[in-house]
């Protein structure tokens, strides 16, 4: 993929980012690779900026009067009531609230997984209500990555196949797919478990595969619905750190529905939802004092 020069023996090595030692002299290549990555990132962010100059939006997601009413028999149950929420590009947003408060419903609306009863949701100023099935699939495939509480890996596929599935839909060539799949699984720390099936992996590992899969087509937004809900504290923490790292390093917008208090620690903003309405929105700065006390009292 990229050519780098070994600092010790001056051999030119082609690397995909997986090899970190020089095959000839065994020198550590990570320093050189990091430099290279920075240049590439700068170049690409340049391209990204150009791309954006046509459609620069501060808010990557905006909802307008979002309302969802579930009809259960004769009874109408409002899950969301007139939700107005603007989500900034590149922020780490947590949606918090007790179960049944409507946070998962909001998650589904933003992700285009369900249709609102009224109101609409804009992704990069595109009105999702106007999209046809094909465009919606395209959006889900390229723009949004999903992480679920129950991992939702395809049980008959290996970690690698799970991660490459969205790439198949995106029409990537199979060489590219395998390379990228290996890279992503390496990032989440499963470089040695590429060909394990989900049932051969622990919960935390499965969720890591899910994180890798959500990044398959380098989405602008990663939506995580209670990503730590089925994990123990330590593993949950690892997943949160992974998401935070992703958010910090790649400026992917992370939107996470959760009631895990550990999430507060890494969130830029926290939206509190109650009874289908936004109760209040906390900014990161205002929360610093709280964290010390909350950190101890885990659920």
């Amino acid at each position: 993929m990229a050519k780098i020069e070994c600092p010790k023996c001056k051999t030119v090595i082609e690397t995909t980012g997986l090899v970190t030692v020089c095959p000839d002299c065994g020198a550590d290549l990570r320093g050189v690779m990091e430099e290279l990555a920075h240049t590439v990132a700068e170049e690409s962010s340049g391209a990204f900026a150009r791309d954006e100059s046509m459609t620069t939006h501060e808010f990557i997601v905006r909802t307008k009067g979002l309302t969802k009413i579930y009809t259960m028999g004769e009874v109408e149950v409002p899950a969301l009531r007139d939700v107005e929420l603007d989500i900034r590009r590149g922020e780490y947003l947590s949606i918090m609230g007790p179960s049944g408060s409507g946070k998962s419903t909001l998650f589904n609306m933003i992700g285009g997984l369900d249709k609102p009863t009224s109101g609409t949701c804009f992704i990069e100023e595109v009105d999702m209500a106007q999209l046809d099935a094909f465009e919606l699939a395209w959006l889900r495939c390229r723009k949004i990555g999903y992480i679920f509480q129950t991992f939702n890996l395809i049980p008959v596929m290996t970690a690698m196949e799970n991660v490459t599935l969205p790439m198949i839909f995106a029409g990537m060539s199979s060489d590219e797919m395998l390379e990228r799949g290996a890279l992503l699984l390496d990032i989440v720390g499963l470089g040695d478990r590429l060909h394990h099936k989900p049932y051969e992996l622990s919960g935390g590992q499965q969720q890591r595969v899910a994180v890798a899969r959500s990044l398959a087509n380098a989405p602008a937004i990663v939506l995580a619905d209670e990503p730590t809900g089925n994990l123990d504290l330590q593993t949950g923490k690892e997943i949160i750190d992974l998401l935070k790292r992703l958010n910090a390093e790649s400026e992917t917008t992370i939107i996470s529905a959760t009631h895990d208090l550990k999430m507060i620690d890494v969130s830029d903003r926290i939206v509190h939802i109650r009874d289908g309405m936004i109760e209040r929105i906390d900014e990161r700065e205002d929360l610093d004092i709280e964290i010390g006390t909350i950190d101890g009292e885990e659920e």
């Binding site: 993929m1 980012g17 990570r30 690779m33 990091e34 990555a37 920075h38 590439v40 990132a41 170049e43 690409s44 391209a47 990204f48 029409g171 990537m172 990228r180 890279l183 992503l184 390496d186 990032i187 990044l215 087509n217 380098a218 790292r245 992703l246 390093e249 790649s250």
Partner: peptide
């Protein structure tokens, strides 16, 4: 640390818009 940067770099594929 570098991997995510690299991943993003790879995320701007050379494919044209139609593809």
């Amino acid at each position: 640390m570098i991997d995510i940067d690299r991943m993003l770099a790879a995320a701007k594929p050379s494919e044209d818009d139609e593809i």
